[in-house]
Simulated scan of single mutants.
Amino acid sequence: MPKRILQGVVVSDKQEKTVIVRVERTFLHPLLRKTVRRTKKYHAHDESGAIKVGERVQIQECSPKSKLKRWEIVSEQA
């Protein structure tokens, strides 16, 4: 099964080797037929520690690295 890849914005880099990424998704409300935006935060592994707050990144599923970390940074976007 392929691993999921999500895009989001880094909202916190205070932890060592961990960043928190906010991922936004949009969907059509089933009854109102209106576009709705929802966000979710993911803890992602950043081995180098080079990622800073505000940067757009891609995260990919991985095996569990800690209690909350199930994602890792794949690439940084401009």
Rank of each mutant, 00 (worst) to 15 (best):
S66L: 02
T35M: 11
T39P: 01
I51G: 06
F27H: 11
I59A: 03
E16L: 13
I59V: 12
A44S: 13
V36M: 14
G54A: 12
S48W: 00
K41D: 15
K69F: 00
E47D: 14
V21M: 04
E61K: 02
K65C: 02
Q60R: 12
D46A: 07
V19G: 03
K41M: 10
P64F: 00
K40G: 01
D46I: 04
K52L: 14
V57L: 05
I20D: 03
V36L: 09
V19L: 04
R22H: 05
K69V: 15
K52T: 15
D13C: 14
S66G: 09
E24D: 15
H45Q: 10
A50I: 09
H29C: 07
P30Y: 02
W71V: 01
E61T: 05
V53H: 08
E16V: 15
S48Y: 05
E61Q: 12
W71H: 00
H29Q: 05
V57M: 05
H45K: 12
P30G: 04
R70C: 00
H29M: 04
V21R: 01
E16W: 05
V57F: 02
F27R: 09
H43K: 08
R33T: 09
T18W: 01
S63E: 13
E55H: 06
S66Y: 00
T35E: 14
I20T: 11
Q15E: 15
E55W: 03
S63A: 09
K41Y: 07
H29K: 10
H45G: 08
E16P: 01
E61L: 05
K52R: 15
H29D: 14
V53S: 09
G54Y: 07
R37T: 15
L68W: 00
K41Q: 13
E16C: 07
G49Q: 10
K41I: 08
E55P: 04
R56M: 13
R22S: 15
R25P: 04
K67G: 11
V21A: 04
I20H: 03
A44F: 03
L68P: 00
T26E: 15
K65S: 05
L28W: 03
I20E: 06
R56F: 09
H29V: 07
H45C: 10
K40E: 14
K14V: 11
C62F: 00
L31D: 10
V57R: 02
G49C: 11
I59C: 04
I51M: 09
V36N: 07
V36C: 10
G54Q: 12
R38S: 14
R22T: 13
V57E: 02
L32F: 05
G49H: 08
P30D: 07
G49Y: 09
T18V: 15
Q58H: 08
E24C: 09
K34Q: 14
K14R: 14
I20K: 06
T18D: 03
K14E: 14
I20W: 04
K34R: 15
F27I: 05
